Simulated assay, not measured.
Amino acid sequence: MILALERSTARGGAALLAEDGALVAAVEDPRGFQGDAYALVDAVLAQAGAPLADITRYAVGTGPGSFSGVRSAIAVLAGLALPAGGRLEGVSSAAAVNAVFRAGHPDVSTVAVVGDARRGRLWIAVYGDGAAPVHAAGDFIVVPHAAVAESLPSHAAVVTPDLDRLQSLLAAAFPPERVFGVAPTAEAVARLALAGSAGPPLPIYLHPAVAPPPSQD
Rank of each mutant, 00 (worst) to 15 (best):
A26C: 10
A26F: 02
A26R: 13
V27R: 04
V27W: 05
V27Q: 04
V27G: 03
V27L: 07
V27F: 07
V27C: 11
E28T: 12
E28K: 00
D29I: 03
D29C: 05
D29T: 02
D29V: 02
P30W: 07
P30Q: 07
P30K: 05
P30R: 10
P30V: 08
R31S: 08
R31F: 02
R31Y: 01
R31V: 01
G32K: 04
G32T: 08
G32I: 09
G32L: 10
F33L: 08
F33H: 15
F33S: 15
F33I: 01
Q34M: 13
Q34A: 15
Q34I: 01
Q34H: 13
G35Y: 04
G35V: 04
G35E: 05
G35H: 04
D36A: 02
D36H: 01
D36S: 09
D36P: 01
A37M: 05
A37G: 06
A37S: 12
A37R: 06
Y38L: 14
A39F: 05
A39M: 06
A39K: 12
L40Q: 11
L40V: 00
L40Y: 02
V41S: 02
V41C: 03
D42C: 01
D42I: 00
D42F: 03
D42W: 04
V44M: 04
V44P: 03
L45P: 03
L45E: 04
L45N: 02
L45C: 05
A46D: 14
A46N: 06
A46L: 12
Q47W: 00
Q47A: 15
Q47Y: 00
A48C: 01
A48I: 01
A48K: 00
G49N: 03
G49E: 04
A50D: 01
A50W: 06
A50E: 13
P51A: 13
P51E: 11
P51C: 03
P51V: 03
P51N: 05
P51R: 09
L52Q: 10
L52A: 14
L52P: 03
A53H: 02
A53K: 01
A53P: 00
A53F: 00
D54N: 07
D54Q: 14
D54P: 00
D54G: 08
I55S: 06
I55F: 09
I55E: 07
I55P: 06
I55Y: 08
I55V: 15
T56D: 12
T56W: 02
R57E: 13
R57K: 14
Y58S: 04
Y58W: 15
Y58K: 03
A59H: 09
A59V: 09
A59T: 07
A59G: 10
V60S: 07
V60G: 09
V60W: 10
G61A: 11
T62F: 12
T62S: 10
G63H: 11
G63L: 12
P64K: 14
P64L: 13
P64Q: 13
G65D: 07
G65I: 08
G65H: 08
S66D: 10
S66E: 09
F67T: 08
F67S: 08
F67P: 05
F67V: 12
S68E: 11
S68D: 10
S68T: 15
S68R: 15
G69W: 09
G69T: 10
G69A: 09
G69D: 08
G69Y: 08
G69F: 07
V70Y: 13
V70P: 10
V70C: 14
V70S: 12
V70K: 13
V70H: 12
V70G: 12
V70W: 13
R71N: 14
R71D: 12
R71I: 13
R71C: 14
